[in-house]
């Protein structure tokens, strides 16, 4: 079976750092940044990008719709 590789793009400025995406990620891809955005939130980012499978769970639960997801077979 072909392996899926994914990638996410987080709109860091619009992220409110709620971490709901982080706990929804099945592979531990997402972490929270050590620095804050202009609103003062520790925004989400792909801390372990190689683990991403493009399942879109994070985007699905993101209340602010700041995550875009890409996926491809490798």
């Amino acid at each position: 079976m072909a392996k899926m590789r994914g990638s996410i793009v987080v709109d860091a400025e619009r992220c409110k750092g709620c971490e709901v995406c982080r706990v929804s990620c099945p592979t531990g891809t997402i972490g929270m940044a050590k620095e804050v955005n202009h609103k003062g939130y520790y925004f989400a980012y792909p801390e372990n990008p190689d683990l991403c499978i493009g399942c879109a769970n994070c985007a699905m639960v993101c209340p602010d719709g700041v995550i875009t997801v890409y996926k491809t077979k490798i």
Binding site: R5, P46, A56, Y70
Partner: peptide
Amino acid sequence: IEATGIKNIIKPENLVY
């Protein structure tokens, strides 16, 4: 913020969400 080393995945044809 983009994931490093996976730029080739971030293409319109791979968009899922």
